[in-house]
Nucleic acid binder design. Structure first.
Lengths: 187, 187, 187, 187
DNA sequence: TATGAATGAGATTTCATTCAT
DNA sequence: AATGAATGAAATCTCATTCAT
């Protein structure tokens, strides 16, 4: 079904791994190209600039998370712990990429805008979960919902980048804590 | 009372403003020095490198937050909203600096270590607030407490950098939400 | 036969002339690149740093000396004066380069190691000239042989950098003296 | 008799040690001053520039060698090995300083001129040793004598900086070789 | 006499990006 | 479509040197 990966696909995949390992500011576009098996100039045939490549990587990352989440929801409906595990695992796998994202959001308009679109989608999803109608515009959201998402993300990052462990907090206990928070939110 | 600021103080103050406005990766040491009214070389008489200057700025930032917190606690004991306001205001004022911190933590050993020391101090404080004895080593901590801190920080940052507003969530309502979370934690 | 020179070749050639004229510490990599007709960054596409460029120049210099020596030995077998002339002329032509070498040997590990490899090769050659078997390891050498080489080199340098002339010693007489020393060594 | 050392003396002594340890291009004048227990600016009260300090150090070094040589000649007249030992020991003790000298001679006019004055003094001494009259002008010198001095210096340096040992030549045997050369010269 | 404090002028190196083929 | 080769424009950091006190 899926044909052999295009040059662009290979560039994105290599960039994902490289950003994840070395951070956005820790690599350069020449290395990204070489990591995919291409020459530097090829990079610029497929992306206008470095940021654009990151954006592409980030988009894929978001899609992958949604896909994983949907798979989980089919099997384990209403099991917060399963959701926690999917999300946290995804963050753990891509901890370096997340760190890069946190670098770019305040600096790059496009990345920021995409991150917000993504956030809106999450907020809409939460609203639906709680049986509320989502207004077409999707412009208004609940503070509680946003707080939940932010907590989720921040705790997942703390587990992913080793902060929890470094502070003497068992990462597994933190996952449990997260599941509890989700349940309280849903109640 | 306080003597006139030393060169180092002036460099730190100028670096704080500059990092806050332009991001860590958005300025260079020459600009930091010029912003304080000095020549580039002067910077290196006071800091071994750029990271060291950021670390110094960050230390001051942390001290300032603790001081503000202590002042508040004297007047408004047990008022979560007051605490929320102090912390969030501090994050709002220094949103760019916080963004830079998030850039450096995954990349810079020293910054990371200092951030963790700071986190341990916060965790010890929370433990004391709840009437628990803090073990001398201070090595073990409660998942709940860490989750609270992370939530606090992340929500404060979201208010600070305009993410909440951009998503159609009233920043003030988020503050209220945060205060509620604190109360639940304390109960 | 020889294709057009590569960028690296041109950089090395320009660096040889520039180091020779201005000394290692008397130029910078930007100038080396410009002297070859390239932009500064190009230099770093071909050498990791300034020292590496010097090392490359030095290697070429050593090869050139051996080649000149071999040519001479074919025609003028056993004529010490011919050998003296070849070596001294080579030193005269590259006096500034030799001075740079003397700067770097005590300071740079790689340059030193290469200079010593080169010296071992010379010592092996002398041993063979005197009809001795060179032990495979080539680890042990005669003090007399090393003394000859050092004398040769130092006297050649003194002629090359004008020291002899400045001291009222006729450079040509010094060459003759060197040839005499060689004959005594061989006897 | 000798009063307490002046600031200048202390600067020279500290510079000698520092140049010897770190090379001329491996230190800076600030460090030289600090090593003597003074502030950077003090350095420039006593020397017009960095080279001048090196020149002063070099002068002292030369004087010390002559003094040691004269002491030896009083006791061990006509013992080449004793002379070899004095000179080589002095070179060993100050190997780094000698390396710095070799750096500066081709580059610094004053250092070069002083080195040559010193060389003339050595040549005159050799001429006297062989019972020849030294012409008043001291302008003309024997190639044999200069060759001896250069050999002496170069071999001493090779022992001092570890080159001999690195090449598998016993430094002690080289000293013996040097003594032999002196005897042949004198014969 | 000595210095605390500062600096102008670079040297080395990096990197996002281009362009002729 | 891909690339080999190159680069302009910095950013980080160094160092010999100065000057008011």
């Amino acid at each position: 079904m899926a044909g052999s990966p295009t040059t662009r696909d290979r560039l994105i995949a290599a960039a994902a791994e490289t950003f994840n390992r070395d951070t956005y500011h820790g690599t350069d576009t020449n290395r990204l190209a070489r990591a995919a098996g291409f020459a530097p100039a090829t990079f610029y045939k497929h992306f206008p600039d470095k940021r654009a490549a990151f954006l592409a990587v980030y988009r894929e990352w978001v899609d992958a998370e949604w896909n994983a989440l949907e798979d989980t929801l089919k099997e384990a409906v209403g099991d917060p712990r399963a959701i926690v595990d999917v999300v946290v695992d995804h963050h753990v796998r891509w901890a370096g990429l997340r760190a890069s994202l946190r670098v770019l959001v305040p600096v790059d308009e496009q990345v920021r805008e995409f991150a917000r679109r993504q956030r809106r989608r999450q907020l809409d999803w939460l609203a639906r979960l709680r049986g509320r109608r989502v207004p077409v515009s999707g412009r208004h959201h609940e503070p509680r919902d946003l707080a939940l998402l932010l907590t989720f993300e921040r705790v997942a990052d703390a587990i992913a980048d080793g902060e929890a462990a470094a502070l003497g907090v068992n990462p597994d206990d933190l996952r449990t804590q997260l599941a509890t928070t989700v349940r309280q939110w849903f109640a």
